[in-house]
Amino acid sequence: MVDQTVLCIGADDDVEDMAAALDEEADLAPIARTSVAEATAFLDTESVAAVVTEYELSDGTGLDVVDAIRDHAPQTPCVLYTDVSPSDIDTASFEDAIVEYLNRDLPDAADRLGFVVDDVIAHSAQVGFLVPDDEDSRLAALDSYDVDDLPIEESFDRLTDLISSHFDTAVAFIGLIDEQEEDILACTGGDWDSITREETICTHSMLQEDVMVVEDISEDKRFAQNQQLHDLGIVSYAGANMTTPEGQTIGQVCLIDHERRSYSPEQRAQLQQFAETAMEILELRQSLLEASDAEVAP
């Protein structure tokens, strides 16, 4: 198994203690840095599984590092490992940085640090979205489709062409949602490959049973501050679930427009029908692949 890089930041002695505590954990590879500048330079070129930082650093605070990584990789978990009390920590400029706070004065702090870092990595514990309660089985269901080996691209391209034309929207796409991002399998009207799970509206749409419509994302606090959505020109959204025969939602069929718009109950039902058609195509292609594999097996 590949080791997970954990960036540790603190004064010389502090950072050695952090690294020593994390070295006790299998699969964690601590990297030490001693300042905000060194840490941000590292983050500019390398990806990390987690960050552990002291609060007081020679050229700033640990929250400066957290702020920097939230810009680059917002889903990265951060642990503030410090003996400074929360009441003495200046959070005025970092109100939505949100970190795991661990008091290093606790008697078993070093033991807890390894446990907490393992946990926040394993459970993506600081992501800015909610995951379904049955996420593990949902991901297993998604994994059961050999999407890379299925000849579905042309079928899905034709389908998104039809969907976009039917609803007269700027964009129509089909995406599958894995642990970290939405993989766009077909997209008419846009050149989109993937969107992180934190950024995509489908993260929210997949959690509700019926078709989700956002008439104008600037009027919804879940999306109004999401710069990537604005950069993509998204104003309105409608999404319907692709649900496996066993009931797991693995993807979405979506409509995007560059202007505000609403959808009638009939249109929502039609979008759901398109999503069911996409799921049937995926199922059929998977069945054919499995039948073909069975034929060539000795």
Binding site: I98, V99, A125, V127, L130, K221, R222
Partner: peptide, 17 residues
């Protein structure tokens, strides 16, 4: 808050963890 993603991050990082 201005951005509901912060609330999700807060719930994930504190209550649900």
């Amino acid at each position: 808050v201005d951005d509901t993603r912060s609330v999700y991050r807060f719930l994930n990082s504190n209550l649900l963890s």
